[in-house]
Simulated scan of single mutants.
Amino acid sequence: MAEENFDEEESTVETFDVNYSCLRCGTLVSNSELSRLPEIKCICGFRVFVKARPPVVKTVKAI
């Protein structure tokens, strides 16, 4: 019984999938794909990734 409850609690935890893009070629890679690989490297061989930003632009009014 205790094992069943533990399994249910693990499945209810939300994981957010963060997307990264390669700095050289711009290939989008998710965080889960990067964690599966033995080393953090793009298909082009470059090792620098940048967190992909959403296309929404925030505007702030001046005081």
Rank of each mutant, 00 (worst) to 15 (best):
L28S: 11
E10R: 10
K58F: 05
E33T: 12
K41F: 01
F46W: 07
I40K: 05
R47D: 13
L37W: 03
R47S: 11
R24V: 12
E8H: 08
F46E: 08
N5L: 13
S30K: 07
R47M: 12
L23D: 09
V48G: 08
T15Q: 06
I63E: 15
C42T: 06
A62D: 07
P38E: 03
V56G: 04
E39T: 06
E8A: 15
K61V: 11
S21W: 00
I43T: 12
T12S: 15
V50Q: 14
F6Q: 09
E9Y: 12
E4N: 06
K51C: 04
V13E: 14
K61T: 08
V56C: 04
T12D: 15
G45Y: 04
F16A: 05
F6N: 12
D7E: 12
G26E: 03
L28Q: 08
V56L: 12
K41I: 02
C42A: 10
I43N: 09
V18K: 13
E8P: 00
I40H: 04
L37I: 02
T12F: 11
C42Y: 10
A62E: 10
V57A: 11
V56Y: 02
S21C: 06
N5P: 00
T27W: 04
V18W: 07
K61D: 13
E33V: 10
R53M: 11
C22F: 06
V13W: 11
E9I: 15
R24L: 09
S21I: 00
K58T: 07
R24W: 02
K41R: 10
S32W: 06
R36H: 04
I43C: 08
G26M: 05
S32M: 09
L37Y: 04
V18N: 07
R47N: 10
M1I: 01
Y20P: 03
K51S: 00
N19Q: 07
R24S: 14
E9A: 13
T59M: 09
S11C: 06
P54S: 15
R53D: 12
E8Y: 13
A52Q: 11
V29H: 01
A2K: 06
F6S: 07
L34G: 00
E4A: 14
K58I: 09
L37D: 08
C25I: 06
C25M: 01
T59L: 14
V56N: 05
C44A: 03
E8G: 08
G45E: 00
L37E: 05
K51F: 04
L28F: 08
V57L: 15
A2C: 03
D17C: 00
G26P: 05
E4L: 06
E10G: 07
P38W: 02
C42F: 07
K51G: 02
F6L: 15
G45S: 00
F6P: 03
E14S: 10
K41D: 02
L23E: 13
I40C: 07
E8V: 10
A2D: 00
V18D: 09
V60D: 01
V48W: 07
V57T: 14
V60M: 08
L23P: 03
L28W: 05
V29R: 04
N19P: 03
F16V: 13
V18T: 10
S11Y: 12
F49N: 04
V48Y: 08
K58Y: 03
G45D: 04
K61A: 15
I40S: 07
S35H: 05
M1C: 01
I63T: 12
L28E: 14
N5H: 11
I43D: 11
C42M: 05
M1F: 03
N31S: 15
E3H: 01
